[in-house]
């Protein structure tokens, strides 16, 4: 791997170190007076301003890139991820999960992260009950015991009213806390 090493300067100093020191403004006495080190610094100084200008140039992809990505992603969604609503009626699982996350988000002080809906068996009479596993992040200071009980209640009720599938149970895992005062909510 010798080719990966940085060749030392004629004075024995590591050329990459001299460059880094010039960048950080921490050149030592030798580096400031040695002609070999000074030559490395001159290289650094020559590029410095130009590189800063190149780094500051803003580049933006045209909107068509993201549009095409989203088109491909939607086409890539697995069609078998459907919940059975009844005979000849299905609901996309991600859609149902998004609806339940929205319920949690609307409560204030909570944000849904993962939401997984599992429909374990099929039923002849109507939609089989589902089990919901949800991870949430909460604002620091909320009463977690009462708020999670309320989440459970709201999710069960949304299951019946919004997505039309009875919810047999809801597991809630509070995995993180945020504090608006330090801007951690985003």
């Amino acid at each position: 791997m010798a080719v990966e090493q940085v060749e030392p300067l004629a004075c024995g100093r590591d050329a990459a170190d001299v460059w880094e020191h010039a960048e950080a403004g921490t050149l030592d006495e030798h580096e400031l007076s040695c002609p070999h080190c000074r030559s490395a610094q001159a290289d650094h100084d020559r590029l410095g301003g130009l590189v800063t200008r190149m780094a500051a140039e803003q580049l933006r992809p045209p909107p068509s890139v993201l549009e095409q990505v989203i088109g491909a992603v939607v086409a890539d969604l697995r069609p078998h991820e459907l919940l059975v609503l009844g005979p000849d009626a299905w609901l996309g699982r991600p859609t149902a999960e998004a609806a339940l996350r929205h319920v949690v988000d609307s409560m204030g002080g909570l944000r849904a992260r993962h939401c997984r809906i599992e429909q374990r068996r099929h039923s002849e009479a109507g939609p089989a009950p589902v089990w919901v596993r949800m991870t949430v992040t909460a604002r620091f200071g909320v009463d977690l015991a009462s708020v999670t009980a309320r989440v459970r209640q709201m999710v069960v009720s949304a299951g019946e009213r919004t997505i039309g599938i009875p919810i047999a149970g809801v597991d809630i895992h509070v995995e993180d806390l945020w504090d608006d005062a330090v801007g951690a909510g985003r």
Binding site: G109, T137, V142
Partner: peptide, 15 residues
């Protein structure tokens, strides 16, 4: 944001 962050302050519950 982890719960160990020293900058936490109490905050009212969900409205």
């Amino acid at each position: 944001m982890q719960a160990t962050d020293p900058a936490y302050r109490a905050h009212p519950g969900p409205g």
